[in-house]
Amino acid sequence: MERDDIIEYSLGAGHSEEQGRAIRKKIYFVTILLSVVTTVEVLLGVFWTNLFPNAWHWVKWVFIMLTLVKASYIVMTFMHLGDERRNIRGLILIPYGLFLMYAVFILIWEATYVHNVLKLFL
């Protein structure tokens, strides 16, 4: 039976040949970007001891920043979250982002405390 209370958003999601070309161009751009960033990460991971022997702290932050760049391109372009309505973007990203910030804060805070206690007794 055909139900008329369900709104078929899916039917409106198609695009034309011309729009498809533009979208594919964007996909290839993101592909190259992700590959380049991964290559940079691997080269830095292998050679950082020779290139920047005393800068582990900075190398670590470069890794984390590059990872966040990759993650945002995957979510926004490959998962199309960038093309969705603002409401749904906020619904997905804000609660998760808040939880993430809390989890990272609490892990660093508590781990530092445990580390200092172990330093006293070991």
């Binding site: 989890a103 892990l107 781990a111 580390h115």
Partner: peptide, 20 residues
């Protein structure tokens, strides 16, 4: 994503709290 966040945070905790 929350599950994986929890796992990676637990990993980070174990690593950051490592004794001397």
């Amino acid at each position: 994503a929350l599950t994986f966040t929890g796992l990676l945070c637990a990993y980070g905790f174990a690593r950051h709290s490592l004794g001397p």
